[in-house]
């Protein structure tokens, strides 16, 4: 039951098209790498696929149906800057609880230490916060993960830790992943296939 973007086009206001007739399918248990220079619309595409933006043309389909509103979104989006994706006035425990009751096994698998849960976002490093965000995104109902440059700001060891945790989840539960990055070596390492942003669009 795939996640499918079919000829989606998006523009802000009345401006030029940012993405135009972009099509891409991600199957469960598959990691698709999306590569491209900055300014090509990778992030806009990620937001459209995850349902944060409505395309003016085309559709995003999950299991051949439109994404449902007002319920848990099985397509979860992760951002480049985790510190901008958490509430600065919530302790990590509350940040996680907003999404789901994260179990200890998940925390252990992602290398989240129990002592972090009582902390504020400004007391954790970028790599620690990104792991919290990953735990938050990997609820039991999550079927697809859109990872938009999620390790670009992190050191190599933390990057490898986070991606290995994601890949384990892909193997175990058939999570589908869209990995967006400008780093070709990383995508080659984590993705089953890599597509270029320019190649998935038609002008």
């Amino acid at each position: 039951m795939p996640l499918e973007a079919r000829d989606v086009s998006f523009r802000y206001g009345r401006g030029d098209w940012v993405i135009h007739r972009a099509s891409l399918t991600v199957d469960p248990g598959e990691v698709v790498g999306l590569k491209g220079e900055s300014g090509l619309g990778k992030t806009t595409f990620a937001r459209v696929v995850a349902g944060y933006l409505f395309p003016q043309e085309g559709v995003v389909l999950l299991d051949h149906a439109h994404l449902r509103r007002g319920c848990y979104n099985p397509v979860q989006l992760m951002h480049q800057h985790p510190e901008k994706a958490v509430n600065p006035r919530w302790r990590m425990r509350d940040t996680l609880k907003e999404a789901w009751e994260v179990d200890d096994a998940t925390l252990a698998a992602l290398g989240v230490e129990p002592s972090w849960l009582g902390r504020w976002p400004n007391e954790l490093s970028g790599g620690e916060l990104q792991r919290i965000c990953l735990a938050r995104a990997l609820g039991p109902e999550t079927r697809f993960l859109i990872a938009d440059e999620i390790t670009t700001m992190l050191d190599a060891v933390t990057q490898a830790q986070i991606w290995r945790a994601i890949l384990a989840r892909v193997r175990e539960s058939g999570l589908g992943v869209l990995a967006i990055s400008h780093d070709g070596a990383l995508l080659k390492r984590v993705a089953d296939r890599v597509v270029e942003m320019v190649d998935i669009m038609k002008w």
């Binding site: 002592s115 190599a156 060891v157 490898a160 991606w163 070596a185 080659k188």
Partner: peptide
């Protein structure tokens, strides 16, 4: 060495654990 070997082009090895926090 761990940092070097964790690069995607060098094996992508991930040493487990985390950097200690400055209060512990």
């Amino acid at each position: 060495r761990a940092l070097w070997m964790a690069l995607p082009s060098n094996g992508f090895h991930a040493v487990p654990g985390n950097q200690p926090t400055p209060d512990s």
